[in-house]
Amino acid sequence: MPGIEKTAPRRALSAGRSSKMGLPGPAFALILIAPCLLLSVAVIGYPIFDVIRMSLFDVSRTGVVREFSGLANFAKAFADPVFLQAARQTVIWTVCVVAGTLLVSVPIALILNEDFYGRTIARTIVLLPWAISLAMTAVVWRYVVNGDFGTLNMTLAALGLPFENYPWLADARMAFLIEILIGILVSVPFTVTILLGGLTSIPESLYEASAIDGAASTRSFYYITLPLLWPFMQIALVLNVIYVFNSFPIIWIMTNGGPANRTDILITYVYKQAFAFGKLGNAAAGSMVMFAILLVFAIVYLFLTRAQGAKNDD
């Protein structure tokens, strides 16, 4: 990653000879790109460097970087049972939310791709959770499932069900399950958007051809829709893994990782280490672990999109 940053501008400069004609030379193109690159390198590149440095050094509570400590921060993190618990929970969180999202999104995308009355309204409603801040979604749901005053219990009670004062978030398992369901809810819009993009790119003539060939609609689903949708599902999968893995507000606001760290994931762990306990070295080590995992996902994503781009070019 830092390697990319370094080589890109250098190669650019050596090739940068501008034409005298007023036609855009590579140097001019670089001038246009420079602000974008500078902003990105400064705001994203520098913190990466800083986090790497902190993870390898002994850092005081106030953030003074003291002596080099090798992998001590990492060793400390891996020895911390809360870290390991958070890591385990991160896997559960990511796998459940992503799998659930795809499971829900594929049928929804298929339905929304049909031509029916009110489709635009239905699409708008499905995409609605995307428009709202995750933080606010979390706040509202925290109220919805509130045991004493929430609207969920109010509705269930009105239906005659025995949930009068059921404290949904008090039990860690139940709380985590609810957070996972909300995670699915907010990931569906983006996923449906990608899948719909894929579905609309399947030419109608393919279905007509297979209908003429006498294929039933379930068969054309298996032989046409699914194979053509597959690359989009892969991309949605990888992007969702990245987004969900990184997702902070839902858990932070609804349960703050509690009760007893049983809903903590790596990102909330890191945040607490840094801003609640002032263990910056620990936090940096945790960040680096996450960063490495993300980088793997990013490379998988690049690989997938490149492969697909190459296929599209044929």
Binding site: M1, I4, E5, T7, A8, P9, R11, A12, S14, A15, G16, P24, P26, F28, A29, L30, L32, I33, L37, S40, V43, I44, Y46, P47, I48, F49, D50, V51, M54, G63, I242, F245, N246, F248, I267, V270, Y271, A274, L280, A283, A284, S287, M290, F291, L294, L295, F297, A298, Y301, L302
Partner: peptide
Amino acid sequence: MRVPGKGALTNYLLITQMISPIVLIVGLFR
């Protein structure tokens, strides 16, 4: 335009998209 290092730049931007700000939040804050 013909941009030298276009592929590397695109990949770099893509990767920055994948990094959540929270992973870097300590560095950002500092």
